[in-house]
Nucleic acid binder design. Structure first.
Length: 831
RNA sequence: GGGCGGGUGGCGAAACUGGCAAACGCACUGGACUUAGGAUCCAGCGCCGCAAGGCUUGGGGGUUCGAGUCCCCCCCCGCCCACCA
């Protein structure tokens, strides 16, 4: 038995990886006259070693990139490292190792594993965000955005992570009060910080979603909700002896039904308006609310609690006085921190009113159907639009029209206006951390915050790091860094010691790949014209409202700077599912169910691992790791391997003989061409690699049943083998190269399969000439007949009626109707 | 509470515009080859039934000659958001 008879991935994979590299097979820009495709996967944060989730994203993207290259496109498929961030710094606190050192090591490990998996990256374009060569452009963008007023310094409440001891964005708070990265409790703290005015782009970012037809709908919906536009009106309620109370409402049409107003416990007017006899009770309530965590107070279905302040406010529309309450469910941060309550038309208000015996007044009736009973008899709030009643001059108007007119009235009379509220907050990006991009600002006693001029960038992160995770930011503890001179007047000054959120790094890296070593600008706008937008972006859905919103924002900023020209950074988004452990639970040390790519490649080879990942399910679905399935896919590749070696006698067969193929071998040719079609379709539209691979398996199964003898038969087998190797290339590229070279021999010596053309199918062979037609009687399957594709109803009906089983079911019945679907079925409806 | 996905054999999954449900793989069963088989090849494999036949895509109803697919009601699971006025 020769060595070649056993499938040994270890002996073939490194060889082809070397050949690809030597040939520069995956360099972008090799086909300047061809159409471009930009395939991007979210770059990894290089913590420890690669895990299976990484294996999945890059395998999905790589299959697509390899396919597109074979289709003749000029493909850009880059990779880099999201190298700055908290985990490296937290680890440094534990063991004292410098984040840079650790990160470098991790990158080396990651790069090694990625190469072993055979990913077709253009490694010449590799970037790391921790290089000054990269982050200097973060600083450059910062300065440009500061000039344009997109960056501002704000003094405000911020989320303060008690674990990281750093400010984090609203968008990074999870579970109400947990840090997204370290899961420590988050508290509110007043702190000065730098922020991007992403809210100024809210409308654009919302409108842009309509262009993202190739994004999963659930992602665009999540962004829509996150941006959270609500159109409404701000209305002033007068309180004697106090400033007017501003309330925000989306339902100003219901304001004649307002029977009380409610303030957040933290509302600044609370102290002022509370009457002396109510004071003690109000204070007790406010204190209690302060002590309760936000999560408890606003948690699911918590009791709605409130207390009367003793004050009254005047509804400006009808002059009615309504009581002023405070309650736990009103959020100080949202809107104006005060709401008008219309119990008849808001369920929450309804429940509150019932609990505290406040009046309920119906002012909107359903446009059709039964009228609502009076407030006291109401069973639940009627919250839909309808027709106004008992609403002064607006009575009988529809809700929508009433809202417009009533807001206009408020503006005309000066007690309010139509407004828009957004859920989206500005993106605070100051971090009291070391391992990030220094914010290029100098504080001068005379000139205040002065941006570092462009020609003095980058502000390099000092190598010396004092990382304790406590007290002042690490950079504040490095005097050589802190002490500088003012760029404007030259006098002694102090540098900003905060660094940027690492979401800044990932907001524009896709553009840096276009000219990764450019030292005059963040990237070459000419290259951007060729390559942007990204055609397919692959990554996890957990980034739906952070990274994926930030990079859309940044793209728009870059457009304002004249660097890019489209509205959106990326055309199609593919969100891949999780790889769970064999037990179906999320992989975790805690469960001891972690499987990593490295050992799997050692054991089965990269091709088997890749095939498993792609075959288990379509990309979007979660999959469970399965040792048995992996074994099965290894066996499949070994089976393919043996097939080629058992059919070496066919390698020399000539295509000229193909036309003579008949019988089983004509069937084989048909199957070959159908497989090409099926496999091609698995890359177009929705990615469905699992069915493409299944088609290859069917072709292999068919080949195992055939013993070619004549020339034409050998030619048909050779045709199938060549197609099989070629179609396998995006999924299992190493074994595909090996077998392709074996079957083609000298003809392919200097070439690479990775560079070869994707096969075309012959439509004449894909179209069958006879088909199996199902025969039903009253919708139930009673037999099947073979008929020519072109067979008409009469012909098929005659064939069907000749079938014994069909005859039995038709016996003694009258055929009332015959339904005929060409090429598919015939259905006798009998009575 | 809201939004978005899902629910198909023992398991992972297929099924184009409504047209033979379960392709392909795993597991399992039988056979062949073999000193041996945890290798390989061949065959079987939704459920009930000896069979003829009947039943089957979370449950119930509907539209249709025909429904996994369309419509209505309900149940369950996952993810995201959440007292958003």
């Amino acid at each position: 038995m020769s060595m070649n008879d056993r499938y040994e991935p270890k002996s073939i994979e490194p060889r082809w990886q070397r050949r690809w590299e030597e040939a520069g097979a995956f360099r972008a820009g090799r086909r300047p006259s061809a159409q471009k495709r930009y395939v991007l996967e979210m770059f990894p944060y290089p913590s420890g070693a690669m895990h299976m989730g990484h294996g999945r994203v890059y395998t999905i993207g790589d299959a697509l990139a390899r396919y597109l290259r074979m289709r003749g496109f000029d493909v850009l498929h880059p990779i880099g490292f999201d190298a700055l961030g908290l985990p490296a710094e937290n680890a440094a606190i534990k063991d004292g190792r410098h984040p840079a050192e650790r990160t470098r090591e991790n990158i080396v490990a990651f790069r090694g594993e990625m190469k072993r998996l055979g990913y077709s990256f253009d490694w010449d374009r590799e970037i790391s965000t921790c290089d000054a060569e990269y982050y200097r452009w973060n600083q450059w963008f910062f300065v440009k955005m500061l000039e344009r007023g997109i960056v501002h310094r704000r003094e405000g409440k911020a989320n303060w992570c008690t674990g990281c001891e750093t400010v984090i964005a609203n968008e990074q708070v999870v579970d109400g009060d947990r840090c997204e990265r370290c899961e420590s409790p988050v508290v509110q703290k007043v702190i000065p910080e730098w922020a991007f005015k992403i809210t100024a782009f809210a409308q654009e970012l919302l409108d842009g979603l309509d262009q993202l037809g190739e994004w999963p709908e659930r992602i665009t919906t999540m962004q829509r909700n996150w941006i959270g536009k609500s159109v409404g009106a701000e209305v002033d309620f007068a309180i004697p002896g106090a400033p007017p109370l501003k309330v925000f409402t989306t339902r100003v049409d219901t304001i004649f039904g307002c029977t009380y107003v409610v303030l957040a416990p933290e509302h600044p007017l609370v102290e002022q308006v509370t009457t002396s006899e109510r004071r003690a009770e109000v204070r007790a309530f406010v204190d209690r609310m302060r002590k309760t965590d936000a999560i408890d107070r606003m948690g699911e279905n918590g009791p709605k609690e409130g207390v009367f302040t003793g004050a009254h406010a005047v509804n400006p529309y009808d002059g009615q006085k309504v009581p002023v309450w405070i309650a736990n469910f009103v959020l100080a941060e949202y809107g104006t921190g005060a709401v008008m309550s219309v119990p008849a038309h808001d369920q929450r208000d309804f429940e509150f009113a019932r609990k505290y015996g406040l009046p309920i007044r119906v002012v909107v009736q359903p446009a059709k159907g039964e009228k609502l009973p009076a407030g006291d008899a109401l069973e639940r709030a009627f919250t839909e639009d309808g027709v106004l009643e008992a609403s002064g001059p607006w009575t009988a108007l529809g809700s929508a029209q009433a809202r417009d007119r009533m807001a206009a009235e408020a503006a005309a009379k000066g007690f309010g206006e139509a407004t828009v509220r957004w859920h989206l907050r500005d993106w605070g990006f100051s971090r009291q951390r070391y391992w990030g991009t220094p914010i290029p600002i100098v504080y001068c006693p005379e000139h205040g915050a002065v941006p570092v001029p462009e020609d003095q960038l980058p502000v390099v992160l000092p190598e010396k790091a004092v990382i304790t995770g406590k007290g002042e930011p690490p950079l504040a503890k490095v005097p050589e860094f802190v002490n500088t001179t003012c760029p404007r007047c030259g006098k002694p000054a102090r540098r900003e010691v905060e660094t940027m959120d690492t979401f800044v790094d990932s907001s524009w890296y896709y553009a840096r790949y276009l000219s990764p070593h450019d030292d005059r600008r963040p990237f070459d706008p000419e290259a951007a014209r060729r390559w942007l937008p990204v055609d397919t972006y692959v990554g996890g859905p957990e980034h739906a409202v952070m990274h994926l919103l930030y990079f859309r924002f940044w793209h728009r900023v870059m457009r304002r700077l004249g660097l890019v020209h489209e509205d959106e950074p990326c055309r199609r988004l593919v969100t891949q599912g999780i790889v769970n452990g064999p037990d179906g639970r999320k992989m975790s040390k805690r469960w001891g169910n972690v499987v990593t790519p490295g050992p799997m490649v050692d054991r089965y080879g990269a091709d088997t691992l890749r095939l498993f990942i792609l075959f288990a399910a379509p990309p979007e679905k979660d999959i469970d790791w399965s040792d048995e399935q992996v074994e099965g896919l290894f066996r499949f590749l070994a089976r393919v391997w043996r097939l080629f070696h058992a059919r070496q006698d066919c390698f020399q067969a000539r295509d000229a003989a193909l036309a003579e193929a008949a019988g089983d071998f004509l069937e084989l040719r048909r199957r070959t061409h159908r497989t090409i079609k099926k496999c091609t379709e698995s890359f177009e539209g929705e990615l469905k690699f699992n069915t493409g691979i299944a088609a290859l398996m069917e072709l292999v199964n068919a080949l195992y049943g055939l013993e070619p003898k004549a020339d034409a038969e050998r030619a048909a087998v050779r045709e199938a083998l060549v197609a099989l190797a070629t179609l396998l290339a995006p999924f299992a590229p190493h074994v595909a190269e090996e077998l392709w070279h074996e079957v083609l021999g000298a003809a392919a010596r200097e070439r690479l399969l990775s560079d070869a053309a994707w096969p075309a199918f012959d439509p004449a062979l894909v179209a069958a000439d006879t088909v199996t037609i199902a025969v039903q009687v009253n919708g139930k399957l009673r037999g099947e007949v073979q008929a020519p594709v072109s067979a008409g109803e009469a012909e098929v009906r005659a064939l069907a009626e000749a079938e014994e089983r069909v005859k039995a079911h038709l016996a003694g019945k009258t055929v009332r109707k015959v339904v005929f679907v060409p090429r598919r079925l015939v259905n006798f409806v009998v009575g």
